[in-house]
Write a protein that binds this DNA or RNA. Structure first.
Length: 581
RNA sequence: GGUCCCGUAGCUCAGCUGGAUAGAGCAUCGGAUUUCUAAUCCGACGGUCACAGGUUCGAAUCCUGUCGGGAUCACCA
């Protein structure tokens, strides 16, 4: 049970009763009413703004509304105290039983704790990574990959039906360049000495492609004209590059259900179809774009192109659909792609992009609005840059041949879990500093370690308790008498756990998985604090040899805390640690 | 020049979609351990929420403008 949500419905019921009794006018809008933990714990357990929100539409003084509502809420059995404070806040204090009941919920739910049906099974398409398939993934892709995956997890957690999707840009000129590069490696595999010309991809990772081509086709391809070997080499290369990328993603624990090919849109005629759709709506014309203001380059020239009227949908200028030579721009198939998502039943889409694509947001939103007649919602999440540091020193990645840090380099050095957690310790639209040393540091300053340590410590205590003869099975812990938990720090941790489902829901609604990382940090702090209280006061230790009832209650508490930590880490895609080494 | 993001404690950042006295970590200073792993904890110090207006019962949060930092711009993908 989500306590905050529960009281939202109780408050609403009380307000409806007041309306029925004629004490409040009918037709009030309750949607802005919220129930949240008060910032100051001394104010109580829950706080609602109901009286302040309703005072104006009801034409009443907020305190008058508050008093009416308070009279109703006093009769709630789980409420021990109701007060009106400040401009009209209503603060509630709840019985310990209510909060402790939440611990039982956690024990019953285990790692699934915090799940809800907020999304009601609605389909959401989350497209992320979508890195160009021209080589292994590099470090610049990691943040978006982790963010998108955690967001997908988060939405699943609250009851959305999530499709994880990767858009393969396999139709552009770069793919031809890639194929030519692979062809060089093919000749190399056949014994030629080659030098990769300027403009082609020099990376070693194409050597296996060349070898595979040589093995399958022998010398045959060499005898063919370009136009004949190109599709063969291209398809083999694409397939192998996508295998490479899938392998890279697997290292991060990421699996997409759908890999959607841009090329397939061209082949199926979907691009032509969606452009015709836009044309029929009168949203396409031939015209010339103005030179961007402030652009002083010499290579600017006017050209007539096929343009989409994205300005009608809030974009800053109309956007080119066709190049001056008549071929499609990247934008055209992208419209077709989003239209395809819509036709597959996704009225809710999320795209995760790097900051360098932020200028592209408005046109895609415009296009989605246009082709779906505003029947789909699209949110574009932009991940700002990651700056790499080693021991506090930034290091630059030169773009020179093959000299970049790959995703695997990073994961090999610090591990999947640390990478994932660290990437989610900042909100997506702020830039993030990633320090290899800091990620591995074993200190309070490193949230990855701090949260994992809390979980490992709990596991350690439970192992120890088992050694001492306590039954730490879930069934036994669920029967513990939780009313023996009376210390403020114990109840504090209990309340923190009770607030977790709310944190999940709010993070999901905001599309902000980083909030989970912060919630976990808070939970870990709550636990570490409690642990240390047991050092000052031996009576507060979890394991009391002479009091098995209290011991069982405390073991149940920390078991639940471990579940909540694991639940949150699960959303982030991180495995909880059983021990620290 | 346009667009997008950022600007909160000395540093790195949260701030629950407009609520109460703006919070953490690091750093500095002072404490706690014969341990259920001190890899931790407790306390103190530290703020003109970049600046100026506006919206309202109420603004770090929303709007306008200014300043500073970053990204981006037209047939690349």
């Amino acid at each position: 049970m989500n306590i905050f949500r529960h009281f939202e419905t109780r408050i609403e019921a009380a307000l409806n009763a007041l309306v029925t009794e004629g004490k409040l006018p009918a037709g009030l809008d309750f949607t802005r009413i919220s129930v949240e933990p008060p910032r100051e714990a001394s104010h109580g357990d829950l706080s609602t703004n109901a009286a302040m929100v309703l005072s104006k539409p009801a034409g009443m003084n907020p305190r008058t509304v508050a008093e009416l509502l308070v009279a109703k809420l006093r009769s709630e059995t789980s409420v021990t105290e109701v007060t009106i404070a400040g401009p009209g806040f209503i603060n509630l204090r709840l019985t310990n039983e209510v909060w402790l009941g939440g611990v039982l919920d956690v024990l019953a739910a285990g790692r699934a704790y915090g799940a809800s049906d907020l999304g009601a099974g609605k389909a959401v398409n989350v497209e992320y990574v979508s890195a160009n398939p021209t080589g292994p993934m590099h470090v610049g892709h990691v943040r978006g990959a982790v963010f998108g995956d955690a967001l997908a997890n988060l939405l699943e957690k609250v009851g959305y039906r999530v499709a994880r999707e990767y858009y393969i840009n396999d139709a552009g000129g770069q793919i031809e360049v890639l194929a030519r590069s692979a062809f060089m490696r093919y000749r190399e595999a056949l014994g030629e000495t080659i030098t990769i010309p300027e403009g082609l991809y020099p990376g070693d990772y194409l050597m296996p492609v060349g070898q595979a081509l040589a093995k399958t086709h022998g010398e045959k391809l060499k005898a063919m004209p370009d136009a004949e070997w190109m599709p063969i080499v291209r398809d083999t290369t694409m397939a192998m590059m996508m295998d490479l990328i899938r392998g890279d993603l697997a290292v991060l624990g990421i699996t997409h259900e759908v890999f959607f090919s841009e090329r397939s849109l061209h082949q199926s005629g979907a691009v032509d179809a969606v452009l015709k759709l836009l044309d029929d709506k009168g949203l396409i014309y031939k015209g010339v774009l103005e030179r961007p203001k402030g652009d002083t380059s010499d290579d600017w020239e006017e050209r007539e192109q096929t343009l989409f009227r994205s300005t009608q949908f809030g974009d800053d200028q109309d956007r080119a659909l066709k190049k001056s030579d008549g071929s499609w721009t990247y934008f055209a198939p992208d419209i077709a792609y989003h239209f395809d998502k819509f036709n597959r039943g996704f009225t809710s889409m999320i795209d995760v992009w790097g900051a360098d694509h932020s200028g592209y947001i408005k046109r895609v939103k415009a296009a989605v609005a246009a082709v779906t007649d505003n029947k789909a919602e699209i949110d574009v999440k932009v991940c700002q840059m990651v700056r790499l540091f080693r021991d506090g020193e930034p290091f630059r990645m030169s773009k020179r041949a093959g000299d970049f840090i790959t995703l695997r380099d990073v994961v090999d050095e610090v591990g999947k879990d640390a990478v994932r957690f660290m990437m989610l310790t900042r909100k997506n639209d702020a830039s993030l500093d990633f320090d290899f040393a800091k990620v591995m540091e074993q200190s309070r300053d490193n949230p990855v370690f701090y949260v994992q340590y809390a979980h490992a410590r709990i596991s350690s205590v439970l192992r120890k308790a088992a050694d001492e003869g306590f039954d730490v099975s879930e069934a036994a812990l669920a029967k513990a008498d939780l009313s023996l938990l009376k210390d403020e720090a114990e109840l504090g941790l209990v309340k923190l756990m009770g607030a977790f489902p709310r944190a999940i829901e709010q993070a999901a609604q905001a599309h902000e998985p980083h909030r989970i990382a912060f919630a976990l940090n808070d939970l870990a702090a709550g636990f570490h604090g409690l642990w240390n209280k047991g050092k000052d006061d031996a009576g507060l230790r979890f394991i009391l040899a002479d009091n098995s009832d209290v011991t069982m209650a405390r073991l149940a508490l920390i078991r639940a805390a471990a579940h909540v930590l694991a639940a949150g880490l699960g959303v982030l895609g991180v495995e909880p640690a059983e021990e620290m080494r």
